[in-house]
């Protein structure tokens, strides 16, 4: 029995190796594995195998069946590969491109559309764009933003780390530091970008989200400037019926700090407050951290004050468009994208 099985295996594999086309492969399959095939015939002999040999022979039978099946699949794939190669061998890719003509409308991603509107509004107010890396140092993400190690607001569990100890920024406030390291006051920037949080993904949470950061540092910047700037911005975005409240809050890197709540028909909320942004006056400790890094007094808190703000674009886009699940923004379903 063993010998016949081994012989069958060898025969089958040899036959399959020379099968020249799909039909030949199918013939080989019928010959060895079919209902009237060689392996089926051999397996009928199982009833004559002694009790102690049964498990071993049974296993061998299965092995041979698997080996032959694998050889068939492999040969099929190889033939397909050869056919594919042949099909593409004569293709002249230098032939001119063929302009497709009218093919239906393309669309910008809803987040891009919102982002572009927000950037346009801030540019009208004299803000320039700034940028910083997604992979950040702990210093830029926490320490420089007045969140030293062991601070209750420094939540390492929610942070993605790199093997070298750096991290994926948990907020775009890092760009405040990156910008002030290089520029001198006045600094008046906005910084859209990705931020990361090690959070379970669900209808309202993604591991990655899009934030808009803002910073203005100059002589004589006050809470009144902060209020004027954000109110103007959100009225431009949501219309003049928008109502705001600035609710005192706590962020390590601003003081005083506020959360901005809004009521507006555009967000479908005329009777309840929606929290949409965090903001505040840049904490003197942040300016001092920048000075220390720069090795000068360019951002002397005795002379300069500033405000900073940040808000999430995904949540705003969700509310504005009525999208029920944040995952639609990254699933790239064309039926969703084509709506915007």
């Amino acid at each position: 029995m063993d010998a016949s099985l081994e012989q069958l295996r060898a025969e089958a594999i040899a036959a399959i190796a020379v099968a020249a086309d799909e039909a030949a492969i199918e013939q080989a399959r019928i010959k060895f594995l079919g209902q009237q095939g060689a392996l089926t015939a051999l397996s009928k002999g199982m009833k004559d195998v002694s009790k102690e040999d049964k498990p071993r022979i049974g296993k061998l039978l299965n092995d041979v069946r698997a080996a032959v099946t694998a050889a068939l699949d492999e040969r099929k794939a190889a033939l397909q590969g050869d056919a594919d190669k042949a099909a593409f061998a004569g293709v002249d890719v230098t032939l001119p491109g063929t302009p497709a003509g009218f093919a239906g409308k393309g669309t910008l991603h809803p987040i891009t559309q919102l982002l572009d509107r927000t950037i346009a509004i801030f540019r009208r107010m004299g803000f320039a764009l700034a940028d910083g890396p997604d992979i950040e140092t702990e210093w830029h993400c926490f320490d420089a933003l007045n969140t030293p190690a062991d601070h209750p607001a420094r939540n390492e569990q929610d942070t993605f780390y790199m093997p070298d100890g750096r991290l994926l920024r948990t907020h775009t406030s890092t760009v405040q530091i990156r910008t002030m390291e290089k520029a001198a006051p006045p600094v008046r920037i906005i910084a859209p970008g990705a931020a990361y949080r090690r959070d379970e993904i669900d209808a309202t949470h993604l591991a990655q989200f899009t934030q808009m950061e803002g910073l203005y540092v100059d002589e004589g910047v006050s809470v009144a400037d902060l209020k004027g700037t954000l109110e103007f911005f959100f009225r431009e975005l949501f219309g003049n019926d928008a109502k705001f409240r600035f609710r005192p809050h706590f962020f390590p890197f601003t003081e005083p700090s506020y959360e901005v709540d809004i009521k507006t028909s555009m967000l479908g909320a005329t009777d309840r407050w929606l929290e949409i942004a965090g903001c505040g006056m840049v904490d003197p400790a942040v300016l001092e951290a920048v000075n220390t890094k720069r090795g000068d007094r360019a951002f002397d808190p005795e002379k300069f004050t500033g405000f900073a703000f940040g808000f999430g674009l995904d949540r705003l886009a969700m509310i504005m468009s009525g999208t029920p699940d944040i995952r639609y923004f990254t699933n790239n379903d064309q039926r969703f994208l084509a709506q915007f």
């Binding site: 009218f102 093919a103 409308k105 910008l108 991603h109 923004f329 990254t330 064309q334």
Partner: peptide, 8 residues
């Protein structure tokens, strides 16, 4: 005629 995607 392309739609813009945004991926994680």
């Amino acid at each position: 005629g392309f739609h813009e995607a945004r991926s994680i």
